[in-house]
């Protein structure tokens, strides 16, 4: 987990430095704010990972000498086929259309989107379709 945190901390470090230099040099607002946001995007999860990596045992995927047996067991639950992403995507597209042509597609879109959200949650509670 350490290398993972270093990658993110590199983002935070770099944009902290560049953002500071840029702000002091240019006093320009928009760019400085975006660089500050990028600094946070790297450093917040980066420090969290670093903090966490010191409290956990290295995972088999962090250990160069790990054998495949070390990773034996359940990797995770992966949902099988599901119609709801399609319905949610369709709903989002209809909602987007409403922002161009006016309101009537909004109803259709929201109905599909809410149906999909309910469907996804219900599906998860049952442990997926499979």
């Amino acid at each position: 987990m350490k290398i993972e945190s270093y990658v993110l901390l590199f983002v935070g470090f770099f944009f902290g430095l560049v953002g500071l230099v840029y702000w002091l040099w240019s006093h320009e607002d928009a760019g400085s704010v975006m660089l500050l946001g990028t600094f946070l995007l790297g450093s917040v999860p980066g420090f969290y990972y670093l903090w966490w990596s010191r409290r956990m045992r290295p995972r088999p995927s962090d250990d160069p000498d790990a054998t495949l047996e070390d990773g034996a067991g359940v990797v995770g639950a992966f949902p099988g086929s599901s119609i709801w992403p399609f319905v949610l995507g369709l709903g989002a597209t209809f909602v987007a259309l409403a922002f161009v042509f006016g309101a009537w597609t909004l109803g259709v879109g929201l109905f599909l989107a809410v149906a999909a959200l309910v469907g996804v949650v219900y599906e998860s509670r049952r442990g997926g379709l499979v």
């Binding site: 990797v75 995770g76 992966f78 949902p79 599901s82 709801w84 992403p85 399609f86 949610l88 995507g89 369709l90 989002a92 597209t93 987007a96 259309l97 161009v100 996804v120």
Partner: peptide, 22 residues
């Protein structure tokens, strides 16, 4: 075995197709 969030992955594709069609 798959991407970390398979259904989110599918949603990405449908948003992409929907956006491209629009």
């Amino acid at each position: 075995p798959d991407m970390a969030f398979p259904r989110l992955n599918a949603l990405s594709y449908w948003l992409y197709l929907g956006g491209g069609s629009l």
